[in-house]
Design a binder for these strands. Sequence first.
RNA 1: GGGGGCGUAGCUCAGGGGUAGAGCAAUUGCCUUUUAAGCAAUAGGUCGAAAGUUCGAAUCUUUCCGCCCUCACCA
Length: 511
Amino acid sequence: MFDEYFEVRLEKANKLREAGVNPFALRFLHGTRIPVGDALANLKLADDGAPEQGQVFAICGRVERLNNMGKSMFLHVSDETGRVQIHVKKNVAGDDGWLVAENLDYGDIIGVVGEAFRTRTGEITLAVSKLQILTKALRPMPIVKKETLEDGTEVVHGAFKDTETRYRKRYLDLNVNKDSMERFRVRTRLISFIRRTLDEKGFFEVETPMMHSIPGGAKAKPFITKHNALDMNLYLRIAPELFLKRLIVGGFEKVYEINRNFRNEGISTRHNPEFTMMELYEAYSDFYKIADLTEEIVAGAAEFVLGTTTVQYGEWKLDFKRPLKRAKYTDLFREYVGISFDNEAAVIEKAKAHELYSPKLEYEVIANELFEEFVEPRLINPTFVTHYPTAISPLAKRCDDNPDFVERFELFAAGMELANAFSELNDPVDQRGRFTKQVQSKDEEAPTEVDEDYLEALEYGMPPAGGLGVGIDRLTMVLTGCTSIRDVVLFPLLKKVEGAPAGGETKEAKE
RNA sequence: GGGGGCGUAGCUCAGGGGUAGAGCAAUUGCCUUUUAAGCAAUAGGUCGAAAGUUCGAAUCUUUCCGCCCUCACCA
């Protein structure tokens, strides 16, 4: 099949090569380039609003608009920091420069030297004195045009918005949709804020294994992989928890890790099979102190990243201003389920009525089904749910006044779990009992093996400690107003496409 | 896995049994302050894939592939 765009652009590249111009230049030759945003910010304007004379800038970027008028042309050049218009004139550009200009296409990457001026229609523009092509784009970038109507409203033409292509070819999405790039900037700023906050508090960032011989630290189906030389199965970690706590045993008092976890479960707008979690553990702390720290991180992140603690999320307005609401699990249960948590008969009856009952499951698990069904979706504004049942919290420490409940909280916002924390169980006998109970349970996702090595570590003594896990993807979703996790993951997992994908992908053979 | 929606030109979309359409983009020509630049002409499609119904299928049916939403699943 003849691909007009590819052939034409290759032809143009060859034409340049024949004239001695490398369409894939080694480097920008005409000075040190300045980011477009910096150039515009540094521009000195005279009283009449026109740039003062003699302000020459060297910039590099991608051609985003191209109006060729025969003997002169206007282009928009865009880099990561901004966009500026340039004006190339045939009599100024010289033979080589004009040859390059005439063979430019949308999406090409160029370098330019030019003096700032203001056009008749008022746009700041660089009058190009030197023009170099740095990279010829052989495929056409999607072209988005914006029209400003007389009443000031903006109409977008040709928006690049096919979700599948945006996910599969994220580089196009980032180039074309600046709001998409901004979302990932927010994500990165969020992570660096968390990192800086924890570093300043004396936390040590560590790296623990991603390949585990026994998956633990959460209840989830793991991915299985195989080490050939050792001839053994390994599991991609579902949580770093047990290794981080081994480090607390080892004498580190404040550790954290920000990295990927893998869960072999359903994919949805809130679940990507690999997701990023920040987990931290602090010796001599507890879940109350960790709740304060969580507030500091979450509220601080909102303020740092967005400049405000309020976020619009779908139809809801969320406010992360401290202090966040705290409510006991059983109180919320009574409020939204409408039954006291300890009224077992009524709870089971209601679970049966909503097809959440299974005779194989123990009472607290069934009750928690009701909690997930009736309470969690109602937790819109950020809320700490505290004091969970022990039976569904195998790694958390029991409350002194009631061993059926643990010192644990989860932070919810927009009906989504954002964080999970507890006073860490450090009694190895209690921990062994709970592990054993899990292994014996009929739950398919329960661990099949007791992590003896972890228990042995606890037996050497772990100081009382608080721990926290924060879902970075979900926190990013909330802070950016995204209702799909795929919009905050650069390359979300998608099925492999057999045959011709949406964007057309059969050009490799042409070279 | 169930239900619903979608897949047509590089991008955004229309067309719903009778030889494939528009805007932008592309090609050619004109145009040295344009900005969805303009004017004129031209080219571009296995209508996601396969099978079926039909004289005839982008259109109807079935299966498959992929994406989105939703339910289920999901510490």
